[in-house]
Simulated scan of single mutants.
Amino acid sequence: MSLKTGPLLARRTLLGAIASSPLWLGNAWAASQAMKISHQFPGGSVMEGDFRDRLCRMFAASVEKRTRGSLKFSIYPNAALMAPNAQFGALKKGSLELALVPLSYAAAESPEANIGLMPGLVTSYSQGYGWKNAEVGQELTRILADQGLVVISWIWQAGGVAARGTPILAPEDTRGLKVRGGSREMDLILQEAGATIVNVPSNDIHAAMKSGALDAAFTSSTSLISFRLQDVSRSLTTARSGGYWFMLEPLLMSKTVFDRLHKDQQSAIMAVGAELEQFALRMAQADDAAVANVYSRTGARVVDMDAEALKKWQEMARTTAWAAFGARNENCAKLLALAEKSIAAL
């Protein structure tokens, strides 16, 4: 070996070791392209607009700052990157890095996901956010991880009902109507009540109601505002005094992508995601209160959920939605049992 060859070989060996280290791999991958964050909601800015879009932008800015620019992000609102239901498959494959999406949209691929919109199972924000550290949340996190998904931010939203006709308060009010429930389990209740089910993502509700293809739609308070459903509705049932329709709409990350990153980058992502949960809670509650004013200004009739109607939905849910979900598979049965356990602990 010549004097020149020895140092050259040693240098190549050192560079090879650095290039194969987790830190180098994570930074090199991230530096090659901005991570994509997809969602179906209207775009805005960090300061204004749909809070779910704002949360994505706040997340991107905070993580980029904490990682000193080693991680960068591009936001794709309005389903500009892909259809809402396609996001889960893309996350699992690693072709999409992050998405903020209703968990129940994954039900076709993951029956367990419908626990995220199980009517009557979650009836308050405190109960929903309590899942994160409870057994039910830990088990759901494990199941999603096994399916290639990492929960970055737990986001819960209460929901109401926009209708082209009279207000929807009790289950029997949906009889004979074309209704969008938002999840398989919600649809089971509506079918039992005599409604015809119309399945559309939240960003397509406005067009469906305007055309008459849809008579009423259950969706979050934020979507009731952001998608301007007041323009095509004559009545609204709000969630400001409580409700049976609470949706888990997390910020998710591809586990394939997450596992590529250095531990410091992973820690920054998880820390920022957790910090933004309080922002999501405040904004969701603010929208629950604001939605009534938005609809009242257009002349819509606004009503609030009452205890008697809530009890009717829960009783019907136990014998339809809950029973069907628990029978899907072993994971579903376990999740339902743990969720009911959390109710008993309240």
Rank of each mutant, 00 (worst) to 15 (best):
S21N: 05
P102S: 09
L229N: 11
M47W: 08
L236A: 05
F88D: 00
L169P: 11
E340R: 15
T256R: 11
D259F: 04
A213N: 13
F51E: 00
S126K: 13
L96H: 10
L71P: 01
C56I: 00
A216Q: 01
L9C: 07
D288L: 01
A327F: 11
S110P: 00
G120S: 05
I143Q: 08
G159Y: 07
S70Q: 10
G44N: 04
L25Q: 11
K72Q: 05
V161N: 03
G160R: 05
M1Q: 04
G194V: 10
D215S: 01
Y76V: 00
A31Q: 06
I205E: 03
R164V: 13
L25H: 08
E64I: 02
W24L: 09
R180I: 01
L144D: 03
W131R: 03
R142G: 10
A170H: 13
A280T: 05
G148F: 08
L190T: 01
F325D: 04
W322D: 03
F51T: 00
P171T: 06
I155D: 06
A323R: 13
E330N: 13
R228G: 12
A34E: 02
P119S: 02
N133H: 13
S62G: 01
G148M: 04
L335H: 05
E192K: 15
L15Q: 12
D146Q: 13
T5R: 15
A333K: 13
A60Y: 14
V150P: 07
R301S: 15
T174G: 11
L169R: 14
R234D: 07
N203E: 14
P201L: 11
E192S: 15
V179L: 11
L336S: 08
L9G: 08
P171W: 08
G128T: 05
S104L: 06
G128P: 14
K312C: 08
A323G: 08
L3R: 10
T237F: 08
A300R: 02
I197R: 06
A86M: 11
A207T: 10
L190E: 02
V63R: 13
L276F: 10
V179M: 13
Q314C: 12
D50Q: 11
L8K: 11
L276C: 03
V303R: 04
I197K: 06
G159S: 07
R260F: 04
A284R: 09
T123L: 10
V179S: 04
D264A: 14
I37T: 03
L140A: 12
T123E: 09
S21K: 02
A271Y: 04
A307H: 06
L23T: 08
S267Q: 10
A163S: 15
W322K: 03
Q87K: 09
E185H: 09
T196H: 14
T13M: 11
F279I: 03
A337M: 10
V46D: 00
W154T: 02
F227N: 04
F258Q: 00
S110H: 12
A207Q: 13
G273A: 04
A286E: 09
A271W: 06
A309E: 00
T237V: 07
E109Y: 06
P119H: 03
E330W: 05
